[in-house]
Design a protein around this nucleic acid. Structure first.
Lengths: 117, 117
DNA sequence: CAATCATATACCGATATCGGAATATGTCAA
DNA sequence: TTGACATATTCCGATATCGGTATATGATTG
């Protein structure tokens, strides 16, 4: 066995920085491949390959327009990532840090009061 | 060149489902390796290896306790993932879907009015 | 129809991974 | 000190990747 395919998951697909860049560019709206090639400074075949991966995980959709292909973002594919990482937000949010402090204070108080646990 | 190292990034580290599971378990608090081994149903060496990766990207910290090692979550390492994916939230949120519809309506209107762009 | 433009695919070599198995390191207990 | 326990490291083979280069496919223009 080796590492999971890049097309296995949105997680795997998006682990590659270039692919994140591509998605970031597509936030601005539909773009033909050549636009992306120009903006990324990458060779055209590499861009097409990255787009294929993004297509396979559903993060982008394509539309034909004459001899060019217009790629468009489909952000829903990223929702699982958002949902997962969202659970960890409290670990760096100051607001929650304060809440944690309060809760710890309460625990301490209960321990001082003695009894079980 | 090959795929980026799993230790290159939080993105790469977390692309592996087992490592996400480990982090999920550590949300419940500090745990020794053997606890994780039991809960994951994985072989001990694999768990140690996954933990190493998570350590190298700063997602967990270790503390020695006799002959065992207690691993603890350090969620701050996941913030870049959260920050990145957060930008895409509007793409699946219904509230923002409605906003998009409104904006598209406005665009349409301007196009109908003609003129440049 | 030929030439050109836009994009996708195929092939290559190098590399880092993953799980499995064996083993090393280090601590505690009798 | 010997043995049991807890964890980390090393070696293995298989595999999927990435960038580069060459080429295929397909649409448009002259």
């Amino acid at each position: 066995m080796a590492r999971a395919a890049t097309t296995a998951d949105a997680f795997n697909a998006v682990a590659e920085p270039r692919r994140r860049q591509i998605l970031d560019l597509l936030v601005g709206g539909e773009r033909p491949v050549n636009d992306l090639v120009a903006q990324l400074g990458l060779a055209q075949p590499q861009v097409s390959k990255h787009l294929r991966v993004l297509r396979e995980v559903g993060a982008v959709d394509v539309r034909e327009d004459g001899r060019r292909r217009l790629y468009r973002l489909n952000g829903k594919a990223l929702k699982p990532i958002h949902d997962w990482v969202h659970e960890y937000e409290r670990l760096w949010s100051e607001r929650f840090d304060e809440l944690d402090a309060v809760l710890k204070g309460l625990e301490q108080k209960e321990e001082d009061d003695g009894s079980d646990e």
